[in-house]
Design a protein around this nucleic acid. Structure first.
Lengths: 217, 217
DNA sequence: TGCATAATCTTTGTATACAACACAATTTTA
DNA sequence: TAAAATTGTGTTGTATACAAAGATTATGCA
């Protein structure tokens, strides 16, 4: 991390801990403790928390504390509703500008991952590349902001449901490979449709996982 | 304004001044001056500015000052790109839940405004009701956040181009009336299409206005 | 014991003091 | 005269002290 100011440093560290579930959903944090942990004063920590609150990653309860946001099924529906609406259209609008060499590299990675035993971490990385490329390809700051926010939420969700989502990973690779192939063939409408289908199936899988997780608890 | 804390009070006041062009695009503000103006310390002002920066209404330049964001044609395209993508789909997803009586009231207002001489302020209010209703109807917090942001930008834009946009207001009323009629008839697909057309025409008009404004300066 | 009430403790909210940096103006030097 | 170094001023960045409010514990009384 190469943050120029302490506010960003605090933001990055706290967000990292929330997304990786080091801070559990529902857990209470407090500003003093966080500032000691990060090694800065309360001021940049507060600024970071304000930012995180707008991204729905924490909830500041006046005079009480800061709660790490929980994720429920309604949240998952919200997240995927945004993705299903935006990502196909971002393909239609911006996919043309994506470097073909980059897409080839991604394709290679997806294909090779299907024939080798990779750790969950590595598989997840490959899984997120494609969506990250779309996020980077789009030149609209409002899209970028909202998509970045839902991706962060999505990553946390993914780790929460890591145990059961493994069944879905190979299927995800197949769907991603299809999308990349269509992008390489400059067939953006078909790629957008494939993306929509992929997201619908991911959403369904996430909801199923979350229901199982909630039953277990 | 009934803000519980000073951060929100500062946010509301500064935003009001930016949107109403009391603070001109490109103008430099500073935290001390703002805090004196509002009657609070620098802390809540800074928190408000952080928020406004994320909404693209100001730009904080380290150790230099706070600049009120300018609006250029690229920004207009970004704003309308978001609206054109989201608002028609929000109609498809959520219009069913809008209270029909509310729509009737809006319809009355639009119709009656066509036969009377209203101030620009009043006309604008009627003009924004329909979009505000859609913003309220949608139950997805991520959509609400991004749409709220672009509406604020849009309002500022509208005031900037107030002189020339008057030609467009009566046309806007006709387009809005058509959308409301289709919503009342439960024809959501047609309403969504009408909304898309309306937004495309509004965007075109805004770009034209902005080009004229920029030439004049 | 059970309950109301007071005292205390923990937490965020706000104000303020000081540090660090950027830029401009001024002075010094070649 | 021109360029470089220095100083001064204004700004945000950060730390910290104190205020306010809510939660928790302790206390006193029936």
């Amino acid at each position: 991390m190469r943050e120029s100011n302490l506010k960003e440093k605090a933001y990055a560290k706290i967000k990292e801990n929330i997304i990786s579930l080091a801070y559990a959903p529902g857990e209470f944090l407090n500003e003093t403790q966080l500032s000691e942990e990060i090694g800065v004063s309360r001021t940049p920590v507060r600024e970071a928390l304000n930012h995180l609150e707008k991204e729905n990653l924490v909830r500041v309860i006046p005079k009480r504390g800061v709660m790490v946001s929980e994720i429920n099924i309604a949240d998952i529906m919200d997240i995927y509703q945004v993705r299903e609406l935006l990502e196909p259209d971002i393909i239609r609008l911006y996919a043309k500008s994506i470097d073909k060499l980059l897409l080839e590299t991604i394709r290679e990675k997806i294909i090779s991952s299907q024939h080798s035993q990779l750790s969950y971490e590595e598989q997840y990385k490959i899984d997120s590349i494609l969506h990250q490329v779309l996020l980077d390809a789009n030149r609209n700051k409002y899209f970028a902001a909202v998509l970045g926010t839902v991706f962060d939420q999505n990553q946390r969700l993914r780790i929460m449901t890591a145990r059961t989502i493994k069944e879905r990973l190979s299927q995800t690779h197949i769907e991603h490979a299809r999308i990349v192939d269509l992008l390489l063939a400059d067939d953006y409408d078909a790629a957008a449709d494939a993306m929509l289908l992929h997201l619908k199936q991911s959403c369904e899988a996430s909801v199923q996982c979350m229901m199982r997780v909630q039953v277990e608890q």
